[in-house]
Simulated assay, not measured.
Amino acid sequence: MENQIAGKVIVITGASSGAGRTIALHLAQDGAFPVLASRNEAALEELATECRDLGTKALVVPTDVTDHSSVRHLARAAFEWKGRIDVWVNNAGVLAAGAFEKMPWENHQRVIATNLLGYMSGAHAVLPYFKYQQRGILINNISIGGFLPVPFGGAYSASKFALRGFFEALKGELTSWPHIHVVDLFSAFLDTPGIHHASNYTGKVLKPAPLVYDPLIMAQAVKASILHPKSTRYPGAASLLFKLSHAIAPELTTKLSGLLMKMYLKRAKKASSTDGNLFNTVNFAMCTNGNTKPHIKPGIRRLLKAGALLAGAGIAVYLIAGKKTSRHVR
């Protein structure tokens, strides 16, 4: 198949570490021209060098997604660089963990400003260019947090649920633009340094959920979305399983999530409170992976896929039974 990635101008926010860094390197291997954005200029310059070593071109644009003028500057710089913007990847995100009332209010606000308003700001900045070009792909790294609540991460959950609603509305607005695509990615838990960069007011050391995927699955999903845009993708079989679980039994799923989180916090080692990278960038763990074990092994992955299929069958049976019941009631 013809390589449709080479030469494309692809803006990536939150590119300095984790999924963003992985996406940039993965696409650079195929000859894309990544526009690298985050608050950490030094990390971006290092990444740009890695991309250029792969034989492509890269542009560094230090950007704070909580500042709309900064995001508009990013879009303008990307467009002026090559005369177009082919793809925009909303990826910059932060996490704040702790009991809702014990977390400083400013921290909750910062999560919303970054995760929700930052993505909206990106869409607001790039859409005029897409409409001018009459084409473009907007890809949003929302994560399974858009369906599955995260106890002790209330602002994070609020931002992710809101993103799902916002981009559904935006897709409705863009129906008359057939070559402008909005793609939402709801990935499973990823092994990135994000957990180490988090604002933490739990009083305990934070670790990712037991089942984590290499962030490469997100990079592969972004590539697939460029080659074949579609409204939603679920990188990692566990993602779809979590979504179906919440769809079938939302109250039970929420209670189990809270129980598991409380059990973990009860056993975890103590840690001092920190704002992490909420208000300022950090200078550690600016890499692709968080080196968390275990990763999802192929056998477990097959089981998760089977579980997702069974859950889907369960929903179908539930819906059919519900229709039959409603007929009897009438």
Rank of each mutant, 00 (worst) to 15 (best):
V94A: 14
S326W: 11
I300M: 05
P193G: 14
V205F: 11
S239H: 02
K262R: 15
D67Q: 10
K204H: 06
Y264R: 09
I85V: 14
L259W: 12
I142Q: 14
P210A: 07
I85L: 02
V111Y: 04
N115E: 10
M103F: 02
F79T: 03
K255T: 08
G98R: 05
L252H: 03
D184H: 01
W177H: 07
L310K: 04
L170Q: 11
L227A: 05
A96S: 13
A78L: 01
S38H: 08
F242G: 02
N107K: 08
V11F: 04
E50M: 14
I85F: 10
L47I: 09
V9M: 10
G165N: 11
I217L: 05
D214E: 15
E41V: 07
G314W: 00
S157I: 00
L227D: 04
G258T: 00
A77S: 13
E80P: 00
A247N: 00
K323L: 13
L319P: 02
G312H: 01
V183C: 14
L260E: 12
K324H: 09
E101C: 07
S157N: 00
I144M: 13
R52H: 12
G299V: 15
N91S: 07
C51D: 07
I12W: 03
I5K: 06
Y213Q: 04
G20L: 04
A113Q: 08
M286W: 11
G314H: 00
A169Q: 09
R302T: 14
F167T: 02
N40R: 12
K207P: 05
M103N: 04
V212I: 15
F166Q: 01
P128Q: 06
D275F: 04
I85D: 00
I85T: 06
D30R: 14
L319M: 10
C51I: 08
V205D: 08
A321S: 13
I296H: 01
A96H: 03
T281Y: 14
G299C: 09
R301L: 12
S187K: 05
G290D: 09
A169G: 12
T66E: 03
R72G: 02
A92V: 01
S231V: 15
A97P: 10
G14A: 03
D86R: 11
V35F: 06
P235R: 07
L27C: 00
G18Y: 04
V65R: 03
H228T: 15
T63A: 05
L211K: 08
F130V: 05
S38Q: 06
K57S: 14
V87A: 04
E251A: 10
A24V: 05
M261D: 06
S38C: 08
S17F: 07
F284R: 13
L54D: 01
R84P: 00
A37M: 12
R330A: 09
L74S: 03
G312D: 02
N200E: 09
A28S: 13
P215H: 11
S239L: 06
K262D: 14
S176W: 07
V9E: 08
I5H: 01
P151I: 00
M263W: 10
S70A: 08
G165V: 06
